[in-house]
Design a protein around this nucleic acid. Structure first.
Lengths: 147, 147
DNA sequence: TTTGTAAATGAAAATGATTTTCATTTAGGT
DNA sequence: ACCTAAATGAAAATCATTTTCATTTACAAA
């Protein structure tokens, strides 16, 4: 079943309505391979649905994130962006300090760390976030050039 | 040398002036064991320096963070907070989803992960951030009670 | 197919944290 | 004591996000 179909059926399941606006937003997100800010989603969606409101974009992104279909990333300068969770897999981010590109990666073995933390603090850990910041290949070459 | 003295000498070194406002802000932060938002710092500083402006608090926090004396944390709901970096040590955060308390921890062995990522993506990694979210001991008991 | 209704939408206004501007003050070297 | 760049505070500007509310719409039930 395509991601799109799955979202549609889950929306229904939870009693949410399937509106053309939601379809359009979903379409934009699932076509994109990169993280998109609400403003970027808005701009792209308007090409196919010019009368949509920015508010609806915010509300829909919030809904899709809540249902687990997209993944929210909070960047450094108070900006958030969203990415389709392909395969619902657990992933983390690699952020380029040169061009702000965000790359996902899956390697993450924190079981040991989690165990130690639980032992020493009594925390029951629900989730974790790992972010590496550095310079991507492109930015490493031509350091002064924007990529 | 006390943290306070060190900050003062480094401020001077970089050509920044030592103002009573900066002293007061520094004093508040170094007395606190927990992360403080700019608004919280402002409120506390006003007790000892009632005429200080919120703008000055923002500017000073930005400066202290830039010089590496305090550590900035971006929380979930668009809020940032700052903590004195005792001993300038590398540390990460443990965030309670019940009461939003933030605890620091030092365990972190990511060398292996970093190596793998560099190999597969060509990224030159500059820093990393690890955050665990979960429920603290207090919130685990009396789940419904705010702690 | 029509109808009823809760959910969804969009416009505008509100919010709220952060930043900018700018005239005034001040720290600290001379 | 004086000078000057740096720092300050008040007010206004920004800007992303949220709230409000009147209107519209999806869709389940008749």
């Amino acid at each position: 079943m395509s991601v799109e179909k799955k979202v549609i059926s889950i929306l229904r399941e939870h009693g949410y309505k399937l509106t053309p606006q939601r379809k359009a937003i979903l379409d934009v997100i699932s076509r994109s391979r990169s993280h998109l800010t609400p403003a970027e989603v808005y701009e792209k969606v308007r090409r196919q649905y010019p009368d949509i409101g920015l508010v609806t974009v915010y509300r829909t992104l919030e809904l899709l994130a809540r249902l687990g279909f997209i993944c929210e990333v909070r960047g450094n300068d108070n900006n958030r962006s969203y990415l389709l969770r392909r395969s619902f897999s657990h992933h983390h981010h690699l952020i380029c300090s040169g061009c702000n590109k965000v790359i996902d990666f899956n390697e993450c073995d924190l079981a040991d760390m989690e165990r130690k933390i639980t032992e020493s603090t009594g925390f029951s850990i629900e989730s974790h976030l790992v972010e590496f910041t550095g310079k991507c290949k492109e930015c490493l070459q031509g350091e002064t050039v924007k990529c």
